[in-house]
Design a binder for these strands. Structure first.
Lengths: 341, 341
DNA sequence: AAAGCTATTGTAAACGTTTACAGTAAGAAC
DNA sequence: GTTCTTACTGTAAACGTTTACAATAGCTTT
C-alpha cells in the first residue's frame, strides 16, 4: 500500500475523525470505548497498514518490552540452550528477545553491544559466557537496567550471576579419573584467564589431595575449541605419558579424540576422556564422551526469571552431574603398575 | 552514580550553561564548536554518565542503524556462518546487528519477530532459513524496510533471496552416488514443504534420467534433524535394500550413521552417505562425511551487502561444491550385480 | 430540576533528540 | 565606519506516542 511514509496514529485519527488520544487508546486496549468506534478504528488501521512506532512509545513510556541477550561469539554450542530457556519464558510474558554478539574477552565489542542496548532502554540485559573486566562491570552497575551474567562468575558479584562451580567441576572430573585408576591426568584447552580457569585450580587441588604429581606438560591451555583438542594431543603425544585427559569442552574432547586416533591411539582403550559441558555433541560421536554435564537450560531460566520477577536473586551455582558414557575406562591393576614411576 | 533517572542532554545543558542544541551537536560531532566548550561538554557528559536515548534520536531521524536478523529456531548449525558474515561487514559499517528467533514454519512467531523489528524502524531485515507464507511475504513487501531472505528461495521473488539451488544440489548428490555405482539410493530427512523440498525433485529427476527405479520406502521425510537420521535408518533397516543415502543435513547424516552402526552396518563399507551443508560437523565425526557444501558465509555477505549498498540485488543462487570425504565408497562390479534386481 | 453518574471522547503536555534557521560577536576587508 | 565573514551558539519545531485531566452528553437519582 503506502510504501512512502509510514502511517501514524495521526493519519488514522484524521481518517476516522477522532482524536489521536482515542485512536491510541483503542489500538492498545486502554479505557473503554464505543464498540462501533473500536471496530471502525481497528479496521481502518489494518487497512491503512498501521504499524506502531515503538521508538515513540518507548520514549514516552520510558521503558521497553525487550530483553537483550549478549552472547560470547566464541564457537560454543551450549549458549543455544541458555537462549532457548530465555525465549521459552520471555515470549509468553510478552517480552521480546534481542540477541547480540560480543567478544569473549573483547572490551570494545562488549561495550559496543552494551551501549547499543542500553541506549534503547531494554528492560534487562543477560550476558552469556562473557568475561567482563572491571571497567565494563562498572558501567553495567552504573546504569539502571537490571543485568545478570550466565555461565561466568563475577568478581565480588558486582552484578548477579548464575553458573556452575568451575572449581568443583574441575575437582570432580579429576576425581572421576582417579577413581578409575588414572594417575597421569592431562588437562586440555582451559583458558588461562577468567572464572573458567578455576577448573584448573580444582584439578590441581584434587591431584594434590591424592598426592599425585602434576607435570607442566600435562596442562595445555587454550580456549575450549576443537583445535585446542588437536593441539593438546600434539603436546601429549611427544612423551605419551598420560592415560587420560580432561577436556575444556565437548568440542575440545572430540578434537583430542580425533587427533589421538590419527596416531593410532584409541579412546577409551588407550586414552580416557571426559569433557565439560555435555551438550548433544557428546552423544553424536563414537565413542560417546563421558561429560561433566552442566545445567545450561536452567541457567537461562534463572536469568530470565531474575528479569521478570525482579527478585533480588543471589548469585548462585547450579548443580552439574557426571554423565558416564563410553570414553572412560577403568585401568587394570597391571596397567596402573606399569604406568607407575 | 545516578541510578535514579537517566541523564539527558537537558541535564548536561543545564550543567554547562549551554543550549541543548549545542550539547547535542557537540556530542555527535556535528558543526563546529569552540574546542574549550567541546572539552567541557564531553567531560561533563562522561562524568554524569550520559547515555544517549536512541529511541528519541531514532524518532526524529526516522531511521536507525540496526540490522535485524531473524533466524529459524530449528537446530541447524549453518546459520552461525551466515550471521558471522553479516556481523563482519555490519560492525565496521557502524551498523548494529540484532538477532531474533522465529519458527521455521510458524507464522505467528514470524509475525511477532517481524513486527518487533519493524516497529523499531530497523534499517533492514535479513531472514535466515525461514519458510514464509504468502501472508507474511505480503506484509514484508508492504513495509518500506528492505528485506532479504537467505538460505531459502521465495516464490515469485516477492522479496529478494540468496540461497543454493536445492534442485541442483539434489541432482548433484544423486549423480555422485550413481557415479560411484549405486543404484538403490535413499533420501533421508528432507521436509515435504518449502523450497528445500526441491532437493527431492532433483533426486527424482536424476534417478529418472538414469532410468533407475525409486521405491517410496527409500524416501524418508523429516526436518533435517539428527533424529531424522535415526528414524530414516529404522525405515531403511527393514528391507536393507539401499546401499547409500543422501541426507538432509550434516546432523541427519550423523544420526543415520550412528543408527546404522548399532545394527552393525558400517560407513562407508556397507553404506555410503552424503550430506547437505558441509559445516564443520562433517569433519568432526569418523568417518568424515562427504558433503554437498554450501557457501553460507557468502550468503550472509550477500545479505548484508544488499542492505548496505542498497543495490537492487537480483535473487540468486550461490555455487555449492561436492566435498569428498570418507563416507562414500565406489561399489565394485560384483556388488553392483549382486544388488541388481 | 438539580445533582450525580457513566460512557465516551478530546486537549495538551510530555518523553529526549535533532536540525533548519536565526542570532551574536569579533575580526577582516573595504 | 560600514559591510562582510567567520565562528560559535541559541530558538523552536518536529518526530509519534501515551496519559492525566477535562469536557460533553445522556442517564439516573433524588
Amino acid at each position: 500500500m503506502n510504501s512512502e511514509n509510514r502511517v501514524t496514529i495521526k493519519d488514522i485519527a484524521k481518517a476516522t475523525q477522532l482524536s489521536v488520544a482515542t485512536v491510541s487508546r483503542i489500538l492498545h486496549k486502554k479505557g473503554q470505548h464505543n464498540s462501533q468506534t473500536v471496530k471502525r478504528v481497528t479496521e481502518i488501521a489494518k487497512q491503512m497498514g498501521y504499524v506502531r512506532n515503538t521508538s515513540a512509545a518507548d520514549l514516552v513510556k520510558q521503558k521497553s518490552r525487550i530483553v537483550a541477550v549478549i552472547v560470547s561469539d566464541t564457537k560454543s554450542n551450549f549458549s543455544e540452550h541458555i537462549i532457548d530457556a530465555i525465549e521459552d519464558k520471555a515470549i509468553p510474558a510478552g517480552l521480546n528477545v534481542f540477541i547480540l554478539h560480543a567478544g569473549n574477552h573483547d572490551e570494545p565489542s562488549q561495550v559496543r553491544a552494551i551501549k547499543t542496548v542500553v541506549e534503547r532502554a531494554v528492560m534487562g540485559i543477560i550476558l552469556v559466557s562473557l568475561e567482563l573486566n572491571d571497567r565494563v562491570l562498572a558501567t553495567l552497575k552504573d546504569i539502571s537496567i537490571p543485568s545478570i551474567c550466565l555461565s561466568t562468575s563475577v568478581k565480588n558479584a558486582t552484578i548477579p550471576f548464575v553458573t556452575s562451580d568451575n572449581y568443583q567441576m574441575g575437582y570432580t572430573a579429576t576425581q572421576l579419573m582417579i577413581d578409575k585408576g588414572h594417575t597421569k591426568i592431562a588437562l586440555a584447552g582451559i583458558p588461562t584467564t577468567g572464572s573458567i580457569n578455576l577448573r584448573t585450580q580444582g584439578y590441581l587441588a584434587c591431584m594434590a589431595d591424592h598426592h599425585l604429581p602434576v607435570k607442566p606438560e600435562w596442562i595445555h591451555y587454550g580456549s575450549c575449541t576443537y583445535d585446542d583438542g588437536i593441539k593438546a594431543w600434539q603436546m601429549y603425544a611427544k612423551k605419551r605419558e598420560i592415560t587420560c585427559a580432561i577436556c575444556a569442552s565437548d568440542f575440545t574432547a572430540i578434537g583430542l579424540m580425533n587427533a589421538a586416533a590419527e596416531s593410532g591411539v584409541k579412546v577409551p582403550d588407550d586414552l580416557s576422556l571426559v569433557s565439560f559441558d555435555g551438550t548433544e555433541m557428546v552423544d553424536m560421536v563414537r565413542p560417546r564422551i563421558t561429560s561433566i554435564t552442566q545445567s545450561f537450560y536452567d541457567m537461562g531460566l534463572a536469568g530470565i526469571q531474575y528479569l521478570i520477577n525482579g527478585k533480588d536473586v543471589k548469585s548462585e551455582y547450579l548443580p552439574f552431574k557426571v554423565t558416564q558414557r563410553d570414553s572412560t575406562r577403568v585401568l587394570t591393576a597391571a596397567e596402573q603398575d606399569s604406568k607407575k614411576d
